[in-house]
Nucleic acid binder design. Sequence first.
DNA 1: AAAAAAT
Length: 479
Amino acid sequence: MATDSWALAVDEQEAAAESLSNLHLKEEKIKPDANGAVVKTNASTEKTDEEEKEDRAAQSLLNKLIRSNLVDNTNQVEVLQRDPNSPLYSVKSFEELRLKPQLLQGVYAMGFNRPSKIQENALPLMLAEPTQNLIAQSQSGTGKTAAFVLAMLSQVEPTNRYPQCLCLSPTYELALQTGKVIEQMGKFYPELKLAYAVRGNKLERGQKISEQIVIGTPGTVLDWCAKLKFIDPKKIKVFVLDEADVMIATQGHQDQSIRIQRMLPRNCQMLLFSATFEDSVWKFAQKVVPDPNIIKLKREEETLDTIKQYYVLCNNRDEKFQALCNLYGAITIAQAMIFCHTRKTASWLAAELSKEGHQVALLSGEMVVEQRAAVIERFREGKEKVLVTTNVCARGIDVEQVSVVINFDLPVDKDGNPDNETYLHRIGRTGRFGKRGLAVNMVDSKHSMNILNRIQEHFNKKIERLDTDDLDEIEKIAN
DNA sequence: AAAAAAT
């Protein structure tokens, strides 16, 4: 594909820009004040046919204008469009998107000033009419959630009292977290309601739900669509798979996700987002998503340089525990997450740390959901500084104060092979939105050293040795 | 191995 065929001629760009700024004079004037809140300076009135026509003309001019911001397809990301002859573009401000006023207001109220990199590239593709599908990859903590939430909110019609947007999350905790983002960004739609299709949310049988957006985990959503019929899947317009690779992987939630997908109407927009897509999952994603636009990271761009990675060499589990105790003072400066391979190890480790007088929280899938919600809530509030957990928290969980991730056990799959994707997601619980982070891997055998080396090779990223008996070294990483 | 259902 020749780069220069994408470009609009300079005079065309100028013409589009001028027409657009003229249009803005006639539009409701919406702009954020100093606090990021949005002020309406003009009451809206019924639109005349003439104005409707102008709107349509403006949309087409807008399309032209935003196309003039060409996506940098050579650098960090590869953007492949469904229609290869169509130009690729990115947006540099939320205003350019001509969002509904309530939605723009929601975006600014969340404190977003301008789109992040993934939002720049993904938003034009997601908001294009008629709708198109998207498979998008972007590093952890770069604004994927806000991107797809915005896409859902731009399609929803709050006056229609039935589900129109459906979002799947791999875990209960992530569904709750993403739900909060939907509620925040959508809070200026007075009629908009969100339903949580998660474990423990029991509804009365035999009725349909009236909420316009549904966020949930695969099992419950499938139940609500198929068995219990709370949702009419045929009316869904936007279907989002968050952490999409694990949602469609055979060893993940493939069965349920695909069963749900098959119930949706043919013209339903599908949006798949994740920080990782292992090769075979990419192929499968492109098979199940019709004519997708694609945003893909180059391998060397997958890791975040802001996260420093170390390993600690031990001989057994007790030594790992001792090393962890040596680190405890350093990791509790802010907050930390400690990952274990099994629920059993996690509860053992939490108990042992407590015996040593360290206050820690424990979160795993064996707990009842009420307890899980309470634990994650306390951790978010900073009431607990250390969370001992399993892969249930590996993906998506966004707690800003987390500055350290410890892999007490390295992530391996069911065959004992290194789980590169889970590794990246786990360490991505820190270093969010450009902040610095620290990851410490506990190695307890030749076997686990080999796993770590293979992870290192996969990402071509050096993981340095850390001596936890050397207080100076701990001092060094803590700052 | 963990997660995911009102199974």
